[in-house]
Simulated assay, not measured.
Amino acid sequence: MKKYYWLKLQKDFFKDPRIKKLRRIAGGDTYTLIYLELMLLSLETDGILTYEGIEPTFEAELSLIIDEDETNIKVVLNFLTSQGLMEQFENKFSLRQVLTLIGSEADSTERMRRLRAKRKEIENVTCDANVTSCDENVTTEIRDKSKEKIYKKENPQIEICEEKNSDEKLTPKKKFIKPTLEDLISYKQEKKLNVDCESFYDYYEAKGWMIGRSPMKDWQATMRNWSRNQEAFKPPKQQTEKNYEDDYEWR
């Protein structure tokens, strides 16, 4: 698998005092260029340059590789060492800045990146086509609404009917909220019901606020029905559970 490397220079790279000092030396721009070439040369080895002994000196060997003047390379190597930008370990030379400037990408990653870019380009073209179609639809819709407005003006009873249907659709379905014992007592006092609130609460709490097999929809109505049938109430021991729920089911 191929792997691509690149050098990511920070935006303040040339503002680094050491780089500025290197550039101010006579021939400094050439030295700076050589430094960048050396960093590129060491990308695949994490900033390590190895002296193979092909030439008598390291600078002579680098001159052969990057096609730069041997004397200029020697000046750069001496400068990097004096500024702490390069360290030597036997026949290996480490460029310390490289590790913070390396970028890499496998060839498969590169292919996926190109594929995503291609898909995005296709999506943009499709989107443009959809926008054109959308514009046509909007024009047609405006024209149809104009006709509809004239028709409703001539037939006002239709508009009234539509508004009524619209209101029915927008009416939200009431969600059951389980009451607290305090809610039951308050409602009992308000409606003056003949209900033992604790018995009512305990009974339906034990059943998960279900009436038969259906969830309770309106506890107030169930409580009123319980009050009306209070005189006919019989303990569960004398009556089956199903019959008991039938007596108190809100219809």
Rank of each mutant, 00 (worst) to 15 (best):
Y5R: 07
Y5Q: 04
L9W: 13
K15S: 13
K15M: 12
K15G: 06
P17G: 11
K21C: 02
R23Y: 07
R24G: 10
I25F: 09
A26Q: 10
G27D: 06
L36T: 05
L38G: 04
L40S: 02
L40G: 02
Y51P: 03
E55W: 03
P56Y: 13
F58V: 02
E59S: 14
S63F: 05
L64P: 00
E68K: 15
D69K: 14
V75N: 15
V76I: 10
L77H: 06
F79W: 09
F79D: 05
S82K: 15
E87K: 15
E90L: 13
F93N: 12
R96E: 09
D107A: 13
D107I: 09
R111K: 14
L115T: 08
R116H: 08
R116G: 00
R119L: 10
R119T: 01
I122C: 01
V125E: 15
V125N: 11
T126H: 09
N130E: 08
N130H: 08
V131N: 11
T132N: 02
S133K: 13
D135I: 09
E136T: 10
E136Y: 11
N137E: 05
T139D: 10
T139M: 07
E141L: 15
R143D: 14
K145R: 15
S146Q: 08
K149L: 04
Y151A: 07
Y151M: 03
K152M: 07
E154G: 01
E163L: 14
E163P: 00
K164N: 10
K164W: 11
S166C: 00
S166T: 06
P172H: 03
D183P: 06
K188A: 03
E190G: 03
N194R: 14
D196I: 00
E198K: 14
Y204A: 03
M210Q: 13
R213G: 03
P215C: 00
D218S: 15
W219C: 01
A221K: 15
T222F: 09
M223G: 04
R224L: 08
R224S: 05
K234N: 01
T240Y: 07
N243F: 14
